Simulated scan of single mutants.
Amino acid sequence: MSTRYVVIGAGAVGALLAAQLELAGIPVVLVARGVHLALIRGQGLTIHRPDSIDTVRPRAVDGPAGVHLTPDDVLVLAVKAQDADAALAEWAWQPVAGGGVTADLPILTFQNGMDTEALALRRFARVYGVTIAVAASYLTPGAVVSPSYPRIGVVWIGRYPDRADPAADGFAEDLRRAGYGARSVPDITAWKARKLLGNVRNGLDLLAGSAPDKARAGELLTAEASAVFAAEGIVPAEPLSGLVVRPVPGHTPGRLSTWQSHARGASSETDHLNGEIVLRGRRLGVPTPVNARLQRLVGTSWSSGTTYPVGELLTVIDDGPPGGTRGEDGPSTGDTTTGSPSAGSPAPDAARNGAGPAAGGAEVRISA
């Protein structure tokens, strides 16, 4: 029997991947929920591309009960990092035809950050970390936007803990058939680290301020992450390859995954991006005040609807959390703007490590 991919999570990454596998004739099941699931089942998944609108009809289910798992299945974990552990627990001990459980199957982890692979390894013996650069967007149930075509995205996949594994070559080949630039690597941790150097900037999309100030804040965030990796002996891979992305009618480019989650009213991944750097820094004794401050600002913004100015990061050396109380995170000017962060913050520049098309079509670095 041929490999079937069970894609758990139908956001921008998971839904688009399932659609591309379906179009390539590779067996796939997409696990979705709510209105998104109902629309995919009823009218198919709509994919908005630069020159077309496609409708793809992958098989869609709402959870483990909807899938008769077999030993030939491969799980693809495509939920956000903050939802990974719950999904792993839900799926790990489901029965597989012929004996065994889901934890016996290979699992591909597509999350941002560097935590999911270790979480998966608690239950799954065969874990393959994945780093993906893709200019996809999911804001409306039943639809995703894919500004890159025919090359959908770029993928690096490797066994975790780091080592060469022939199975990763086979997964990469299937992804290439599905329209991705994909290759297997023996050092997936280095590729996860490389993407996290860009992802620590994602939360800036929810702050108010000028592009130059956000660029400066981004440099500070990345410098702290680099210092943590250096102390830990992790050497990030070379910069992620760019994609040629083009305008899609009706789509605003450059909105990264954190912004998209906020716009949908979903939970925040910032604790697994900036929070990952903060955690590692605290363990190693490496200061990370700018990342800690951004984590705090995004967290409080998510819960209160307050939009903070990027100056909260640029003045972090004064030491003190938002509101004027001192603490390890850094300073506060006490100057905030009330309102929805998604409405109060300007759209980020797509060419700034963004996940959207540059005007007229250009190669940009992707950090979705």
Rank of each mutant, 00 (worst) to 15 (best):
V61D: 06
V61R: 01
V61N: 05
V61W: 01
V61P: 11
D62N: 03
G63I: 13
G63W: 01
G63T: 07
G63L: 13
G63N: 08
G63M: 13
P64M: 13
A65K: 07
A65D: 15
A65C: 01
G66I: 06
G66L: 08
G66Y: 04
V67D: 12
V67R: 07
V67M: 13
V67W: 12
H68I: 12
H68Y: 11
L69I: 11
L69K: 02
P71W: 11
P71M: 06
D73E: 12
D73S: 05
V74P: 08
V74F: 02
V74D: 04
L75S: 06
L75P: 08
V76S: 04
V76Q: 00
V76A: 10
L77R: 04
L77N: 00
L77F: 07
A78Y: 02
V79S: 06
V79Q: 04
K80S: 09
Q82S: 09
Q82F: 11
D83W: 00
D83P: 01
D83H: 10
D83N: 02
D83R: 03
A84Y: 06
A84L: 08
A84W: 01
A84C: 09
A84N: 05
A86R: 05
L88R: 01
L88W: 07
L88E: 04
L88T: 02
A89M: 14
A89K: 15
A89T: 15
E90H: 06
E90P: 00
W91D: 09
W91C: 08
